[in-house]
């Protein structure tokens, strides 16, 4: 009796987690470079009351035994690294990655973080920084008074300086690839950090070794599909409801058995 109560409760907890993940996806529908996540579930352990293969008579065996499942558990919250939509902004320091690759920025504590959000700005030292002021790594400075900045598909940054007709190369943007980008740890602020399961960053020129090329004047939107998330919300809510019915049933049965003692 009590078993069914707890089994159903694990199902409700699982659905709650699923809704939490969907809520975060929806909250970030307009976050540049955001990648949606998905909660994956597995069944919990089984209580074996009669082992499969246990003898049922001297000559026969019970083929499947008696096993009681104890519910479900979250196995992983997986980031889905599909391409987001491109938005044209016209801003010369907005860069989107077409395909695989992350920009690398240096955090205030000196460690590296990775991002798909290419909305760069200049800081007071004329360095290219992300929206939170963290400088790109390798660092790129735009000379003072540059008239026009262009970023090539291969990450070459060139600027037209006053009095010059042609562009001068001022830096080279690099992107990082990972063996398993889904293994990166999200640290908020559009940033991801390396973990043991992501593998080390492989920094290089965009467009080479399967790295995606860059697109100046565009931003990569989130890859959240509102319709898909809403469907997820509905199925999550209904699954939550149906599991709560199992609890209600267990409760009713407990009440009925209490009633036989007058």
């Amino acid at each position: 009796m009590i078993r069914a109560l707890y089994t159903a409760a694990t199902g409700m907890q699982a659905q709650q987690l699923s809704i939490d993940v969907i809520a975060n996806n929806l909250a970030n529908v307009n976050t540049i470079g955001f990648k949606k996540s998905r909660a994956d579930f597995q069944d919990l352990l089984y209580q074996t009351m009669k082992a499969p293969g246990a003898p049922s008579t001297t000559n026969t065996q019970s083929p499947t035994g008696i096993q009681v499942g104890l519910g479900s558990r979250p196995a992983a919250i997986q980031r889905v690294n599909t391409q987001g939509d491109y938005t044209q902004t016209g801003n010369e320091l907005d860069v989107a990655v077409e395909g695989v690759g992350f920009f690398q920025v240096t955090l205030p504590d000196g460690s590296q973080a990775f991002t798909r959000a290419g909305a760069f700005k200049l800081d007071n030292q004329s360095r290219l920084v992300n929206s939170d002021g963290m400088p790109l790594e390798p660092s790129i400075s735009i000379p003072d008074g540059a008239i026009d900045v262009s970023i090539g598909q291969d990450g070459v940054v060139s600027a037209i300086l006053p009095g010059q007709g042609t562009g001068t190369q001022v830096g080279q943007l690099q992107t990082a690839r990972f063996a398993n980008p889904a293994g990166l740890r999200a640290v908020g602020k559009n940033l991801l950090q390396e973990t043991d399961t992501s593998g080390p960053p492989q920094l290089g020129t965009p467009g080479q070794e399967n790295r995606g090329t860059l697109l100046q004047g565009f931003l990569e939107g989130s890859n959240v599909s509102v319709v898909e998330e809403l469907v997820g919300l509905i199925t999550g809510q209904r699954a939550y409801e149906v599991t709560s019915k199992a609890i209600q049933t267990a409760d009713e049965m407990l009440r009925a058995s209490n009633a036989i003692v007058r």
């Binding site: 009796m1 109560l5 069944d43 499942g69 479900s72 049965m253």
Partner: peptide, 18 residues
């Protein structure tokens, strides 16, 4: 009936398990 309830609860708890 209780054993059946356990099984139904287990199935419903795993409605989202691929």
């Amino acid at each position: 009936a209780l054993a059946r309830l356990d099984a139904v609860a287990q199935n419903l708890a795993n409605v989202a398990t691929p």
